[in-house]
Design a protein around this nucleic acid. Sequence first.
DNA 1: AGCAAGAGTGAGAACCATTGTCAACTTCGC
DNA 2: GCGAAGTTGACAATGGTTCTCACTCTTGCT
Lengths: 134, 134
Amino acid sequence: MSTPHPAPVRMTRQRAAVADALQGSEEFRSAQQLHEVLRQRGDTVGLATVYRTLQTLVDGGDVDVLRTDDGESIYRWCARREHHHHLVCRACGSTVEIDGPTVEAWAQMVGTEHGFADIEHTIELWGICADCRR
Amino acid sequence: MSTPHPAPVRMTRQRAAVADALQGSEEFRSAQQLHEVLRQRGDTVGLATVYRTLQTLVDGGDVDVLRTDDGESIYRWCARREHHHHLVCRACGSTVEIDGPTVEAWAQMVGTEHGFADIEHTIELWGICADCRR
DNA sequence: AGCAAGAGTGAGAACCATTGTCAACTTCGC
DNA sequence: GCGAAGTTGACAATGGTTCTCACTCTTGCT
């Protein structure tokens, strides 16, 4: 198997803008929301580019994606690159990073116990944060 | 507050067909797959009707919905109506119903611990089942 | 059985988030 | 400064899901 081209990544105004917008918020945001934020901020970036950049960031492990109930993808720049989960506010998107060693182990065990391989899991918590409850 | 009309539900050939198709499989299936299954079986049902019926069944608690990685909704008639989770085969959709009292408690605790209310959680396991690994 | 009321259905249009297209434009190594 | 190749943006195209609306059944009542 020959080395697949490492695909060089260039720094562009658009990428910097998207990354900056993401790093500036604790909340999970949809691509469309980010696109709007950038527009208002003056950093005009094409919607397609926002999507592409987000995908790149996700692939690179800098950003996490989640699916809302209605199927929209929402993104967030996460502090820790290691595997972790989220406790997200349904109202404002505000998020707390969570990790649960116990749950990880449980998922793995239940999976193999039933003869499944390559086990992955989706574990996300949703609620209404203290601020939104005021 | 006066009793809102209970919305009577009528039994129709289409609903019976969809329910039957669902009850006949252990697997999670997409609306489109079910539509195709019904067509081949001779029970022609409009795609829109399949979607509507599935939604009704979900609302009634007879059917569970999940979202695949690519955003498609998949449905399954579940044996237990109580809250539970799933271990789903990424290849064939075959499913095992799971429950984890520990996890439930953990989710609840983590949530309140961070000041969140109305806590819900999404916990699903994905893997490749023994059969698909042959 | 006969009937009327209104829930249910289907074909196709409409939605809408996301992805593909492709010519024009930048970035970066030399 | 040059040029190869990665990037971008406007717009078309996808694809799952929902909406529309005229027509068809199920149901309850007689």
